[in-house]
């Protein structure tokens, strides 16, 4: 079964995204040799079933905490074919450095601009097409708590899997 890893810094809505994708079934287990808990569940996207992994929060690809080490190990060792980098769209400046690190490593992530509703409330507009061109990866806007944008995200995942996996 192919894997989808959900990555990103803490408090950006990773777990809600995980629940949106997987429904209610999830297994919690300690990552081997650590005290860090990792959530895994299954998701059907298109005609394919995936294993979805909710990784612990990470700020940088250069790990400092045990959580970050686990998240990196999942990315390196489990070779997920889709990596969803979830960010808080309000804080583009703080969140994009990690995206750049993924790209530097040749990992083709899908960038998810979560909590986009709060960005709109602030009167800010993010030009998604421009951002896609800058980074050369798919960028999707979502509001994980309401489910807004989930269909588009699933469509982009399908596309991505067809092209690269």
């Amino acid at each position: 079964m192919r894997k989808i890893a959900i990555v990103g810094s803490p408090n950006v809505g990773k777990s809600v995204m995980f629940n949106n994708l997987t429904g209610s079934y999830a297994t919690v287990s300690n990552y081997p040799g650590t005290t860090v808990e990792v959530l895994r569940g299954k998701a059907r996207i298109g005609s394919e079933e995936f294993e979805v992994i909710d990784t612990p929060g990470m700020y940088s690809f250069l790990p400092i905490t045990e959580e970050e080490r686990v998240s990196r190990a999942i990315i390196l060792d489990e070779q997920p074919c889709v990596i969803l980098h979830i960010i808080d769209a309000k804080n583009l400046e703080r969140m994009l450095p990690l995206t750049l690190q993924f790209l530097e490593a040749g990992l083709l992530v899908i960038l998810v601009l979560n909590i986009i509703d709060e960005v709109r409330d602030l009167g800010i507009n993010i030009d998604v097409l421009h951002l896609e061109k800058e980074l050369n990866i798919p960028v999707v806007e979502t509001v994980s708590t309401t489910g807004e944008g989930m269909d588009i995200l699933k469509g982009r995942i399908e596309e991505h899997v067809k092209r690269f996996c």
Partner: peptide
Amino acid sequence: LSYIISLRRQKETNRISQAVMSFKKAG
């Protein structure tokens, strides 16, 4: 070096952010 590398990344991030974000007139 970690400082120099992060700084470079942040600079690039700021450039991209400024390029893609625009502020509407305050409501």
